[in-house]
Amino acid sequence: MSSDVPTTTSTITAAGAAAKASVAGVSPTPGVAKPDPILTVDHVTRRFGGMTAVDVQHLEVQRGIITALIGPNGAGKTTFFNLITGFDKPSSAPKLIGGPKAGEAAKSSFNGNEVGNIGATKVAKKGMVRTFQLTKALSKLTVLENMRLGAKDQPGENLLVAIVKPLWAKREAEITAKAEELLARFKLLEKKDDMAGSLSGGQKKLLEMARALMSDPVMIMLDEPMAGVNPALTQSLLGHIQALRDDGMTVLFVEHDMHMVRHISDWVVVMAEGKVVAEGPSGTVMDDPAVIDAYLGAHHNTDLGDDSLLTDEVAEELAAEVTAEEGKA
């Protein structure tokens, strides 16, 4: 495995090695059971009209490691994120009348709680916090306000307490300090009083990730976190993500940049046409001929360091975002 770690970045920590070790014995087959799963998903399907966007029969995510979710465009990764974080409802969700049969209804449990049917707010409260592929920076709030909004346990978020400032001023000071610390790490500190809308695309991605971290999540789900972030900052953020893992956080992220996937993930799950088609340690999965055929292409190994690949990715990403923006207008 050591050959997978480029020499330019952080060395393997003890915790990192432990994370890899925790799934070392797991056989690389789709839907395989993990020794200590934090998230277990069963029978989650989502259809749009006639088309099935997601059809995951069983998937477990191991606690305390970095899992990458990869797959071609339109594979259903974002939709799958929406389904497990409560932003969308599976077509196979249990219904009062006419739902699926008892054993086949969608079920997902997170950290010992059923989270299949509780809605996005409660899922986030249980400690599973996500970011969005199309960034959702709150444009007309300042960067610092964006960050503060992410914090948990704020007494001032109760209307009756809000009126009297002394009741919440102390907690506000705490979260402000924490926000500034995170902003410094994400190189956004000097922007803290700017409106979030004025940030660049990549900066918005960073802000969104930092904001998600304000709530000290148990598990963080990142949808293409590094799309549009410059290489140098990507490197330092990868180190940051690994540090989070080393502190015991579980990370699940979607990414098209194979360089990055190979670099930091302890486990890789491959989706295609809505289904989980392969999973395993990154080296194993990326050498799987089925995966290479479906997604990576024959030259994936030789081109990894090539900057042109990155540029194409970025260009595509931006193009997609521009179209989406226009769609909104």
Binding site: F87, A124, V129, K136, N146, L149
Partner: peptide, 14 residues
């Protein structure tokens, strides 16, 4: 104000 800007983002923050 967060909800005014994007309620899904606020929901994702719990």
């Amino acid at each position: 104000r967060g909800i005014r800007e994007d309620e899904d983002a606020v929901r994702a923050l719990g």
